[in-house]
């Protein structure tokens, strides 16, 4: 793991887009009054002809992006994840997925990261809906290196994708982009242990690593899997661990329904023997609090995950 300081994923993405946009004028960024929260002000300053502002109109954001892509542009449509995947989901289904346009949907301030702004601004159902849409890759980078690796792939890829990111600076889980992002559908094993498997993605990856450290002190050795992409899903690795472990825990910043736990369950149920424990947000509006407080409340932080594992392993 790198000793470099934690970085906000949004800032890293902006650097990658500026870099790619300078080399390829077809790279365009569309924002819905969201360039500030999307950390894209530097992009707008450096490449003013490659940013399109559509105003607070998320449906339009997606469809205009599809139109641009149809005429050869490589648009990144940026909007808070909550609006991008709910307000505009029919546009995603029809104009991006069905028409097969090369639009990258960048959901910013995702999951619970808007914290005390309330459920209007939380995206805790976005993975459920995006992973059910054909022809759409789904990513949630967990640190700066994975973000770099992922975006080096995305600026060249011709496939539509949804990428959800949060707001806070993320501790490093990797040392370089190459190990952090190999290819779509390739999960990474960050830690090897024989007693239990923890499967996470995005902001829960660092928490799973913390949990593994805490469990180690109790003599429990955990394998930690970073899914990297929810779609395509690394079913080969999941199938393997579902036969190697008697208990698998999934940890997600998402509803317990139809997200990472459900995706893993679909593999375990059909090809494995492990018992699956799904940790996530309950079927209710999230309580108020900072993101850290809320993670702790729902047992999604390192300590909460470790406690849950100890209970069932013992």
């Amino acid at each position: 793991m790198s000793e470099e300081k934690a970085r906000k994923v949004g800032e890293v993405i902006c650097e990658q887009l500026v870099d790619a946009g300078k080399k390829d004028s077809d790279i365009v960024v569309l924002t819905s009054d969201s360039r500030g929260s999307g950390s894209l002000v530097p992009f707008a300053k450096e490449l003013p002809k490659q940013i399109v502002e559509v105003g607070i109109a998320e449906q339009d954001l997606v469809t205009i992006s599809a139109g641009l892509a149809h005429s050869g542009k490589r648009p990144f449509a940026v909007s808070p994840a909550a609006f991008l995947t709910m307000r505009s989901i029919e546009q995603v289904k029809v104009d991006v997925s069905y028409s097969n346009t090369n639009v990258k949907l960048l959901g910013i301030s995702g999951g619970n990261s808007y914290s005390v702004l309330g459920s209007t601004h939380h995206s805790l159902q976005d993975l459920a809906i995006t992973r059910a849409i054909p022809n759409l890759e789904v990513y949630m980078p967990c640190d700066q290196y994975q973000t770099v690796g992922l975006f080096k792939y995305l600026v060249k890829s011709d496939k539509p994708a949804y990428i959800r990111i949060g707001k806070k600076a993320l501790n490093n889980c990797y040392s370089n982009p190459e190990e952090a992002f190999v290819k779509p559908g390739k999960a990474n094993v960050l830690r090897n242990g024989k007693d239990v498997a923890l499967v996470a993605m995005g902001e829960t990856v660092p928490e799973a690593l913390k949990a593994a450290d805490l469990l180690e002190k109790q003599g429990i050795k955990a394998t930690v899997v970073d899914l990297v992409s929810l779609k395509p899903l690394d079913t080969e690795l999941l199938s393997k661990i579902s036969n190697e472990f008697s208990d698998i825990y999934t940890i997600e910043e998402h509803s317990i329904y139809n997200g990472i736990g459900s995706a893993v369950a679909e593999v375990v149920a059909t090809s494995g023997s492990a018992k699956l424990h799904i940790l996530g947000f309950p079927d209710a509006p999230a309580i108020a609090g900072t993101q850290d407080e809320v993670f702790s409340y729902y047992g999604l932080d390192g300590a909460g995950i470790a406690k849950n594992v100890e209970k069932s392993i013992s």
């Binding site: 365009v28 002809k49 205009i64 139109g67 641009l68 149809h70 005429s71 104009d95 069905y98 028409s99």
Partner: peptide, 29 residues
Amino acid sequence: NHIKGIEMNTGSLGHGLALSVGIAKAAKM
């Protein structure tokens, strides 16, 4: 749009104008 001559899939109403805005904007750019 698997048929030659069809630019984009439509059917759900209210999409075509925004698609056309994207296409026309690309021409301007």
